[in-house]
Amino acid sequence: MTKFIDLTLNGVSTGAIYAAVALALVLIWRATRIINFAQGAMLMITTYIASAVINSTGSYWFGFVVALLSGLILGAVIERVLIRRVESAPPLNAVIVALGLYTLLVAVAGMIWGNTPRSFPAAFSIRGYDIGGTRVLFAPNDSFIVLVVIAVALGLALLFRATGLGLQMRAAAFQPEVARLLGVRVGRMFTLGWALAAMAGALAGVLVAPSIFLGPNDFDPILIIGFVAAVVGGLDSPPGAVIGGVGLGLGLSYVSGYEGSALVPLAALVILVFVLMVRPSGLFSSTQGRRV
């Protein structure tokens, strides 16, 4: 029973991180109908930047903020400089550009910071809470992770549902041409979508880095599971991303705890196939997916 509680708690905190990654992918999909395969490399870069800032200033929070800001900027620049040029090309071209960008960013990180993984500090203690004499697998830092991801998800929901800017972003995503005819600056909305997505990604990077190590390729598994979470939840649905992320976090935590971690990728496959056979466009998607 203790093990079950531990696995559940652990699943919630890793699930929150998957949710943040899935949110990043969903935001970009909604804005520009592109699966951003470079997301893992982008959040790796911003986490390295955070690490450099933390090391030189000694302040975790300064590094945390810089990571989010540099994500914002990186996302906007990538959309403006690269993605805009392939938006009108066949959809697979954007996929290849994103893969190229992934390779490039990983290589650049290796050149600057080397390929040996390094440790990354946590915001709060990672010693589990003491409940009734037993130490559970959930620490103050996990509370922080869960709360931050909830805050970001609520913030995004508020932006999309309650503000004019969010309305314009949704319109630009659903029908760019009609949106332009209504005076929406569609190009800016796309850039903003990428910037916000990259910021959510940067957040996921700093949150997960303490529990893995920080290296050029160390975020790939999280990104793959984040992608599966986004697909399971439905790529058009930010709430779907959060639910998909947490659900997958829980499911994979149980599989890893009871059956061994080697089976985690296979379990992700089974969950994904099962969901897609029942709902071919994910659990919470309202619109039909375009062909890639």
């Binding site: 959809p91 986004a230 790529l235 994904l272 897609l276 039909q288 997916g289 062909r291 890639v292």
Partner: peptide, 13 residues
């Protein structure tokens, strides 16, 4: 039965 990114996700998994 699947389209676009959903197919991409399934085959990736």
């Amino acid at each position: 039965r699947l389209r676009g990114p959903y197919l991409a996700g399934a085959t990736l998994a």
